[in-house]
Amino acid sequence: MSVKHGLLALLCEGPRYGYELKAAFEARTGEAWPLNVGQVYTTLARLERDGQVERDSEDAEGHVHYRLTDAGRREVQAWWDSEVEREAPPRDELAIKLALALTVPGVDVVAVLQRQRTATVRALQAHTRRRRALPPDGTAASLVLDSLVFAAEAEVRWLDHCEARLARQSRTSSPARNGARA
């Protein structure tokens, strides 16, 4: 996810300064992806260079507000109008680890699976707790946390699936029958 588009989208609502943008971004997204304020200012500088935002007034405390230019507005619209690329999945350490655990001799794969399952369910509990603690008007943030919940749930289902597949395989590949299936 580009911080750039997040900031541009927030600036559609009117001029804001860096720290305000950081706070708004985090509140809207359930604080799932904290931004550091330096990252916000670097991004704003780049957007200014590219003509997508410009400096607005400075308030009494000296905060420099930024506002969207027409080019910035077009950029946000193009973002809404396009889909998020999902084609090249990032390298998944867990999938790699399991593949290796299965093939490298002497690894207790079921124990590896269970350890991960417990950890992922623990993460799910944390997301669920945060979600339940949101104020009633926190729908946007709660939907973001839901996305983390569903992703973690998918991981647990995949781990269950791996374990079931392994169990079936070990039943059907008893020594007597070994080699019967190619």
Partner: peptide, 27 residues
């Protein structure tokens, strides 16, 4: 059997073949 529902609990206990194999610990 749904992790998303289990996550509402303070503690999750995992059973396999009639034995507790792990748990997430207290909230």
């Amino acid at each position: 059997h749904e992790a998303r529902h289990a996550a509402w609990a303070d503690r999750v206990v995992f059973l396999r073949d009639g034995v507790v194999v792990d748990e997430t610990g207290a909230a």
